[in-house]
Nucleic acid binder design. Structure first.
Lengths: 214, 214
DNA sequence: CCAAAAGTGTTCTGTGTACACCCATGA
DNA sequence: TCATGGGTGTACACAGAACACTTTTGG
């Protein structure tokens, strides 16, 4: 029985300055060997805690895929050709969503716009993570994890636009998002720029829930 | 560094006699320890080959999830509470789709209707696999892997109904499936029951392709 | 002639999408 | 007063869903 090295890879997302970004050092996504001493979850926690300025127990987490360095068969989910698992035989990839407000200014230089990661060895993982995230925001309330407790519809829309990579119509966006019934109006106002204050909303639930598409 | 045991679990699906079934022995889904000597893919192959009456390189395969026996954090994808990974510390689950015509009559007794698996220790895995399969047939042509090269629209509809667990309207089903443009009319006829022969269709592509929802 | 499955259209409803202007505020 | 973002309604196109009868065949 050959010794296997199992790694955990973490794609950390945040929407900062209206741009979807990932945390990266030297073009790589954070990773850690899983030794089996702790659970997978605890290992992911540890990986998050190692990121400058972050605590654990923050944000939304989801397992993405388990990549194998020797994978050959066609996979429906992930375009495997070109997949790098780096120094590991198997890498279990996760993504985590963090609100901009939880990331100290001082460490934001390591948060890179995801579409500037084209040369990263982790490109496949990142691309797949973005795809999964795009799917997820369409039919769940996950974006709660990228926003502060209270926010304006404008802020919310900018988060969606950053993730989807395209602009959406303001009126249609509001109509749809309000019809989903996942937001509650706080009755307060909030100013985002230097212009007119906007109504502040919050999520009814700040845990993942699937949206009634009816 | 503690020694970890990594398992591969396999949910084998087929639609037999109009019912979605999984292969099971004593209520368990096939599994195998992954020793690291072969790739994950090769190990899955080996697991398929061990099933009575089956060859490898058959059907559609997709990785589902990597379960950890010590998982505690809430997962969006999979309801983890109650997840059993059996004798392993970590289990990587896959599902495979096989056409009824590839399964010898003599071994069909081990193919159990999926909704009769309520007492299986693999219930969570199976349930999740069914959910993923349901999603997948909505926006891809995966069902090709559950049907012979030529089939009638009636057969196709019965496969959909078995997977979705509900009946669908014949006219609406035909309208939609034909509009997707994934089928081609063979010009031949095929008789399924003892009644009027039906037009035979085949899939334009028998590899996974995503369907243009327009 | 009967049982069994094949085949075929129309109507309604709801959702997505396109689209333009006025309002409140701070600088 | 100007720049900035907030806020609002309508019309059209398309897709999903409901719904019933005739046809072809073998037994």
């Amino acid at each position: 029985m050959r010794l296997q090295r199992i790694g955990i890879k973490l794609v950390l997302f945040s929407v900062i300055d209206g741009t979807l970004r990932v945390y990266s050092e030297q073009g790589n996504v954070p990773s850690l060997e899983w030794t089996g001493e702790k659970s997978l979850d605890q290992t992911v926690d540890e990986l998050v805690r190692r990121i400058p300025g972050l605590a654990t127990d923050q944000g939304y987490r989801e397992q993405l895929y388990t990549f194998s360095s020797t994978e050959v068969s066609p996979s429906a989910e992930v375009p495997l050709s070109g997949t790098k698992v780096g120094e590991y035989d198997v890498a279990i990839a996760y993504y985590v969503l963090l609100g901009e407000h939880k990331i100290p200014q001082s460490v934001r230089s390591r948060w890179i716009p995801y579409n500037a990661m084209t040369d990263s060895p982790d490109l496949v993982t990142i691309t797949y993570a973005v795809q999964r995230l795009r799917w997820k925001i369409e039919y769940t309330n996950v974006v709660y994890s990228l926003l502060p407790a209270a926010f304006t519809l404008g802020q919310l829309q900018r988060v969606y636009e950053a993730i989807l990579g395209k602009q959406v119509d303001k009126r249609n966006f509001r109509k749809k998002i309000l019809s989903l019934g996942i937001l509650k109006d706080t009755g307060k106002k909030k100013r985002t720029g230097r212009a007119r204050p906007a109504e502040a909303y919050s999520f009814k639930k700040r845990t993942l829930s699937y949206v009634e598409v009816l």
